[in-house]
Write a protein that binds this DNA or RNA. Structure first.
Length: 521
RNA sequence: GGGCCCGUAGCUCAGUGGUUAGAGCUGGCCGCUCAUAACGGCUAGGUCGCGGGUUCAAAUCCUGCCGGGCCUACCA
C-alpha cells in the first residue's frame, strides 16, 4: 500500500483578490504534490480560504451584504485561480463550513479539558483605527503628550474579557521540538523562531467579544475564537476531524505545511502548542517560503503594481509561469519576477533547449522512419553515455525536489537536456541518413527514449505541456509516473504495439514580450 | 529600538578558511542545418557592499558601517 503524504498551503484571507504570492505558494504546493504522486505516494493536497475575522465583517458591512455572501464571492476567486494555474488539490476548505466549526470547537474542548484555557481580562492600549492592541513601550507621544500608536493613531485603555491559552507552559517543549527535528525550514526561519521562543512566551489571548463573525467558543456564546485558532485547525478539518478514523487516520500528522515567511510563528509556535495541548500528533515540517518581488519591489495597492495571477497565466501560459517560478527563485529565499524574466527563462529552457529537442527528435523520426519505432540494435558508447547523463539529471531532479530545492533540481534536469542537444550535434543524424541509415535509426530511437524520460521527470512542473508531448509519443496516461522510468520493457512494448509518430506539434512555443511591457531594468 | 536574514559577473544563483572565485542566461566570434531564426563549440565579463581585525592563508571567521527584506504577538 502506498505511503501517505499530506501537504497543505496556508489558507488565504479573502479580503481581496488573489495576488502573485498566493499563486506562488499554490504552484509550489501543487508541484510538491505532483512530484510525490509521481514518486508513488498516496498524496493528499489541501488549500482553501480563511473567512472569519473583523476585516471580513467590516468589508461586508461596507458593501451592504452579509459576511457569508462576501466570503462565498471572494472564495470563488481563489478557486478560479487554482483552476487557471492547474492546481490539483484534493480539498478546498472554507472555514465557514459547518464541519470546520465542529472541528475547531472540538479542538478547543480538548485544550480546555487539558487545563490550558482560562477566562481573564485582556487590557491594554487599543487603537480602534488599527484594530490592534499596543504595548506601553510601543506608544509614541503626540501633540500635548497624547498617547498615539506607532502608526500615529489615537489609543485608549481598553479592557475586554478574553479566554487565554497557556502558551507559556509549552516553551521548553517547543524548543525541544525545534532542536530535535527539522520541524522548521529553512534554517534562517528556525533561528528566528528559536530566538523568539527563547525570549519567553506570554499566554495568548484566544477569544474576542468585540465582534461575532467567527467560531463560537463552546459554553461562552458571546466569545468568538481568535482567528488563528480557527484558521490553523483547517488542516485537521479537511481530514474529517474529530472523526479520527478514515482520512484523518491515514494522513495526520501532515508531512508539510507550506506557508509564507510572514506567518511562520503561527505555524511553529501556536499550532504545535495547540496540538500538544489537545494531545494530537504534530505536523512533521513547516516550510516558510520567501516572497515574490515585482522587479525587486513588493507588490502593493499603493504602488499600483499588483499582478493578477490569472492574467499572468493567460499572457504567458500556465506552464511557463509555473516553470519560471520554480526555476528562477531559490526556494525559501525571496525572488523577483518580471515579464522579461519569464519570457527569457521560458524561451531559453522550455522552448529552445527542451521543446526544440523534443520537436527535432520526433520530427526526424516522422520524416526519416515514417514515424516507426525500431528495436533490436547495439548501443554505442555515445548512446550509453547519453543514457547515463540523462539518468543522472533525472536522479538529481528527484532528489532535489524531495528536498524542496526546485531550482537545483531543474538545473540538474537542464544539464541532461544540454547533453542531449550535444549528442544530436555530434551524431548528426541528418548526415547518417545518407552515410549510415542503420546508425541513424539507433540515434533517433535513443533520442526518443531520453526525451520520454526527461518529459516524465519534469511533468510535475509543467503537466499540461508534457501531457501533450507524451500523447504524441504514445505514452499511456498511467505510465507517466517515476515508476515508469524503471520499466525496462516500455520501449519494446510500444514498438510491438505498432505505435507510429505522427507529424509532431511543438508543446513549448517561444514567447514574445507583450506590447506595452516596460523594458526598464 | 530588539531579533533573524540577505548583499558574489549586466541578470538568476553556486561557492562557509587553502591552487589563477564557478554555472546558466545575456553579449562577441566560429560551426551546423535535423529542429520552435532553434542546436553545438570557443570567448568576453567580478576591488566577492565598504572599512578594520584574526590567520601562513578570508568571498568564507570576528567587528564597525552602508543598502535591502521579514518578524516584533490578526496580511501570500
Amino acid at each position: 500500500m502506498a505511503e501517505p503524504y499530506y501537504v497543505t498551503t496556508a489558507i488565504s484571507y479573502p479580503n481581496g483578490k488573489p495576488h502573485i504570492g498566493h499563486a506562488y505558494e499554490a504552484i509550489a504546493a501543487d508541484v510538491i504534490a505532483r512530484h510525490r504522486k509521481a514518486e508513488g505516494f498516496d498524496v493528499r493536497f489541501q488549500t482553501g480560504t480563511d473567512e472569519h475575522g473583523l476585516k471580513m465583517a467590516q468589508k461586508a458591512r461596507d458593501l451592504g451584504i452579509t459576511p457569508a455572501q462576501l466570503a462565498t464571492e471572494m472564495s470563488q476567486h481563489f478557486i478560479d485561480m487554482c483552476a487557471a494555474l492547474n492546481i490539483e488539490y484534493d480539498v478546498f476548505i472554507r472555514t465557514t463550513e459547518a464541519r470546520h466549526h465542529e472541528a475547531t470547537q472540538e479542538l478547543w474542548r480538548r485544550m480546555e479539558a487539558n487545563g490550558d484555557l482560562y477566562l481573564d481580562r485582556y487590557e491594554g492600549w487599543y487603537s480602534v483605527r488599527d484594530e490592534a492592541y499596543y504595548d506601553e513601550s510601543e506608544l509614541v507621544a503626540g501633540e500635548g503628550g497624547a498617547k498615539l500608536s506607532p502608526q500615529g493613531t489615537p489609543v485608549e485603555w481598553t479592557v475586554e474579557e478574553s479566554w487565554f491559552f497557556r502558551l507559556s507552559k509549552y516553551q521548553d517543549k517547543l524548543l525541544e521540538l525545534y532542536n530535535s527535528s527539522d520541524f522548521i525550514r529553512p534554517d534562517t526561519r528556525r533561528n528566528e523562531i528559536q530566538r523568539f521562543v527563547e525570549g519567553g512566551l506570554r499566554d495568548l489571548s484566544v477569544s474576542r467579544t468585540s465582534f461575532d463573525w467567527g467560531i463560537k467558543v463552546p459554553g461562552s456564546d458571546n466569545h468568538v475564537m481568535y482567528v488563528w485558532v480557527d484558521a490553523l485547525t483547517n488542516y485537521l478539518t479537511g481530514l474529517g476531524f474529530p472523526d479520527e478514523s478514515g482520512d484523518y487516520a491515514k494522513f495526520w500528522p501532515a508531512d508539510l505545511h507550506l506557508i509564507g515567511k510572514d506567518i511562520v510563528r503561527f505555524h511553529t509556535v501556536y499550532w504545535p502548542a495547540f496540538l500538544m495541548s489537545a494531545g494530537l500528533p504534530l505536523p512533521k515540517q513547516v516550510y516558510g517560503h520567501g516572497f515574490l518581488l515585482n522587479r525587486g519591489q513588493k507588490e502593493s495597492k499603493s504602488l499600483g503594481n499588483v499582478t493578477d495571477p490569472i492574467g499572468l497565466a493567460e499572457t504567458f501560459g500556465v506552464d511557463a509561469v509555473r516553470y519560471f517560478l520554480l526555476r528562477e527563485v531559490a526556494f525559501g529565499q525571496d525572488g523577483s519576477w518580471s515579464p522579461e524574466a519569464i519570457v527569457t527563462r521560458a524561451n531559453a529552457e522550455l522552448a529552445n533547449s527542451f521543446g526544440n529537442l523534443a520537436q527535432r527528435s520526433l520530427s526526424m523520426i516522422f520524416k526519416n522512419l515514417d514515424g516507426e519505432i525500431k528495436v533490436g540494435f547495439e548501443e554505442s558508447e555515445a548512446d550509453k553515455a547519453l543514457f547515463a547523463a540523462v539518468a543522472e539529471g533525472i536522479a538529481g531532479l528527484r532528489k532535489s525536489f524531495t528536498d524542496l530545492a526546485f531550482s537545483d533540481g531543474l538545473e540538474a534536469w537542464m544539464r541532461a537536456v544540454f547533453a542531449c542537444n550535444q549528442y544530436v550535434d555530434e551524431q548528426a543524424p541528418w548526415t547518417l541518413r545518407k552515410t549510415d541509415p542503420a546508425r541513424m535509426e539507433v540515434v533517433l530511437m535513443t533520442l526518443f527514449r531520453v526525451v520520454r524520460d526527461l518529459a516524465i521527470a519534469v511533468r510535475p512542473v509543467v503537466p499540461n505541456s508534457i501531457d501533450k508531448l507524451l500523447d504524441q509519443m504514445g505514452i499511456a496516461t498511467e505510465a507517466r509516473g517515476y515508476a515508469s522510468l524503471a520499466d525496462a520493457d516500455w520501449f519494446t512494448a510500444l514498438a510491438a504495439r505498432g505505435f507510429k509518430v505522427e507529424k509532431p506539434e511543438g508543446v513549448f512555443p517561444r514567447l514574445e514580450l507583450p506590447e506595452g511591457t516596460e523594458a526598464t531594468a
